[in-house]
Nucleic acid binder design. Structure first.
Length: 432
RNA sequence: GUGGCUGUAGUUCAACCGGUUAGAGCACUGGAUUGUGGUUCCAGAUGUUGUGGGUUCGAGUCCCAUCAGCCACCCCA
């Protein structure tokens, strides 16, 4: 035997038992997005590395240490996408989506890649779903995007979450606030943790969500962004809250919400869960008015969110939500004796042509074990063919729940199976 | 990237202070008079103890390395 090759660290297979949950989740997301008239967009999973450096921000963790970079055979620098927004904005610009759709209302789903230390709810290849609304600065659109996210979580059945919103201001008032934070925290510099001392220079807003007790204590007295918003930003934030109320979305204002990527401005929001330990960010987003211009397009305001599928599934499981479909409605074809195999196969084909899902196990030649198998697979009906049936061009159909069975003519498949899985044969004519 | 915990049949877990053929439940396979499943009963198969070294008369058990998972930090989905 040759050497066994294992799956890369931080990745996982979606096995047959799991994949139906993913399909269901994705379906619900597509349906919800469609309710709000968003259309799907699919972009490549790798892009020019510069797209992310410029879009996400060069000094973020994502770019500095988490990006999967590679060069191709001609030395071009690419990266597996660590997030979905920059590629979509790239596509928006490249395909002039602003001309055709105004605003562009887009949703997406797919794998993302970050070289991070794996943990539960944190993987190197993970999956995000998200929406982007590009081309409006109307605060209603912030609320709409949030409402869509909220609607989606409710459709899945998630209960244990809170929506926290904030405004981090625009490129005019945000620096004023940073200055105020620096001034405040500098007075307590000796008491701050090491990380926070660095944050003070690099990204002062990050000081606010440090988990260190001392830092938090100091943070309680820190100035609030909400007092530093300029007139336009403050008015916009009020409007967002107004529309959220109108759309009946519950939220709390948390002036400490800071988003990790550089491109955010104004509205920032997070859907947080308590049922997942420290990986509590279920979904996050906000407004990013500067990004389109920054990536070479004409100045266009935009807002969006992204959520993690793995975390959502984990929360769903923690909350006991079943994403498994209601069950099999197919037929298990069982034959008795080698001479009936061909006849059984012919019946399989006829059932399938009626749109009925058929299981037939060619390598199981013991009749009893075939029935056992049907039972284990939870298949509600078994079609039994032995030599008696074959000679009369018939088959026996058994309803596993009740144990009832009837013998039907092969030609009955044409009419009696039109409304499968609704079947009247067991009420009308019973034998056995 | 930092610190800690863990790794034993398909799976969940046992195995004393290092001691001889590494066990059990569930699952699996076969059987209980020939063409009828689920419950029951009987029988059976299963492991290079994550991997590679080391200490020892002897290692699942101790030591080192490595890989992987988990937890916290960092960060985030």
């Amino acid at each position: 035997m040759s050497e066994k090759i294992n799956i890369p660290r931080g990745t996982f297979d979606i096995l047959p038992g799991e994949s139906s949950k993913w399909q269901k989740l994705l379906n619900i997301f597509c349906e919800t997005a469609n309710l709000y008239s968003y259309q799907e967009i699919v972009t490549p999973i790798f892009e020019s590395a510069h797209l992310f450096e410029r879009g996400v921000g060069e000094v973020t963790d994502i770019i500095e240490k988490e990006m999967y970079r590679f060069t191709d055979r001609k030395g071009r620098e690419f990266a597996l996408r660590p997030e979905g927004t920059a590629p979509i904005v790239r596509s928006f610009i490249e395909n002039h989506l602003g001309k055709e759709y105004a605003p562009a209302k887009l949703y997406y789903f797919g794998p993302m890649f970050r070289y991070d230390r794996p943990q539960k709810g944190r993987y190197r290849q993970f999956h995000q779903y998200g929406v982007e609304l590009i081309g409006s600065n109307n605060p209603y659109t912030d609320a709409e995007v949030i409402a869509l996210a909220d609607h989606f979580l409710k459709q899945i059945g998630i209960k244990n979450y809170t929506l926290e919103i904030n405004s981090i201001g625009c490129d005019k008032c945000s620096p004023v606030y940073d200055a105020a934070l620096i001034e405040y925290y500098s007075k307590h510099k000796d008491e701050l943790c090491g990380d926070c001392v660095k944050r003070l220079e690099k990204n002062p807003k990050r000081l606010l969500d440090c988990k260190n007790e001392k830092c938090q204590l100091i943070g309680k007295e820190a100035p609030s962004i909400l007092d530093y918003l300029d007139e336009d930003c403050a008015a916009a934030f009020e409007k967002v809250k107004y529309y959220l109320n109108l759309l009946k979305v519950d939220y709390i204002v948390n002036p400490r919400i800071i988003r990790g990527l550089d491109y955010y401005s104004n509205t920032a929001f997070e859907f947080l869960t308590t049922s997942l330990g420290s990986q509590n960010a279920l979904l996050g987003g906000g407004r990013y008015n500067g990004l389109v211009k920054q990536l070479g397009g004409v100045d266009t305001p935009a807002v969006g969110f992204a959520g993690g599928v793995e975390r959502l599934l984990a929360v769903a499981e923690a909350e006991g939500i079943s994403l498994v479909d209601s069950g099999n409605s197919g037929i298990y074809v069982a034959n008795i004796g080698a001479e009936t195999i061909d006849y059984a196969l012919a019946l399989c084909a006829e059932f399938r042509s009626k749109g009925i899902s058929v299981e037939y196990e060619i390598d199981k030649n013991n009749f009893k074990s075939q029935l056992k198998s049907a039972n284990r697979l939870n298949i509600p009906y078994v079609c039994i063919v032995g030599s008696e049936e074959m000679e009369g061009q018939r088959f026996t159909l058994k309803e596993m729940n009740s144990g009832k069975q009837v013998t039907l003519n092969r030609s009955d498949i044409g009419e009696k199976f039109n409304n499968w899985p609704k079947l009247s044969v067991f009420e009308a004519e019973q034998t056995c």
